[in-house]
Amino acid sequence: MNARQKNTTEYNFAYLDEDTKRMIRRALLKAVAIPGYQVPFASREMPMPYGWGTGGVQVTAACLTPDDVLKVIDQGADDTTNAVSIRKFFQRTADVAVTEATQDATIIQTRHRIPEAALTEGQILVFQVPIPEPLRFLEPRETETRKMHELEEYGLMHVKLYEDIAKHGQIATAYAYPVKVEGRYVMDPSPIPKFDNPKLSGNPALMLFGAGREQRIYALPPHTNVVSLDFEDHPFEASKANHNCDICGAGDTYLDEVITDDQGSRMFVCSDTDHCRIRQEA
């Protein structure tokens, strides 16, 4: 068969070739061994754009087995277009079983949320990461931030957070809120709302982070100690909208704000659509 007639059915299991998967797998093992440290990897050009989850897709592809049950969410929802697109990609290239139920999934690829339901031992949560470097917006140069991590020189981050307090009376970071892992590396938890930060620590699931364009992989093994950066007089607070879900009534979930008419009326609904559905059915 002519290579030019290649169609999707002829791609390898989970799309990536075996050399690439081995390279990613080696990086993943090092990432797990050095929690919170960003391992460089030779990210490949994927058949979807950078910024659309190419890092997460490569990590998922390297981890996926034929026995897995995959869930893909974006903004907490299974039916957002990019989640649909990524789920379909793995159905096509790996013939993998998919689910919307958090507790049935063995691998969950996510963008911007950690599911509301408690994750369990054996589950893997794969985060799509746009900018893996927590210090990037304080220092744009990779050569500099690498040195700062090496020397554990995180003063700049504390200064930034403290300036927030001086200016706004509180820390003005609402998502991608930086954390410190096992007392060593400062890590970007990806743009999850800080409401989700407490779920990073001591979680029984394995959390893997993939940044395709920036060519970095990092990880939080299960039961890893993760602390959101704060100050004694301004302790970290996992905040959310001061409402209950207008559909299921939950008062402890992260909410989307939906504008419902031209008068600007609004309602609040769970961002985790599977969690909301289960509560409605209960």
């Binding site: 754009p49 950078y50 990019n82 999850i192 709302p193 909208a241």
Partner: peptide, 23 residues
């Protein structure tokens, strides 16, 4: 790389926007 990252900002960012709105 540039066009992907640039254009990704049109993807849903409800969650992050909501967190800033609340803040």
């Amino acid at each position: 790389q540039a066009t992907g990252f640039l254009e990704h900002i049109k993807l849903p960012h409800y969650v992050d926007f909501q967190s800033e709105l609340e803040l």
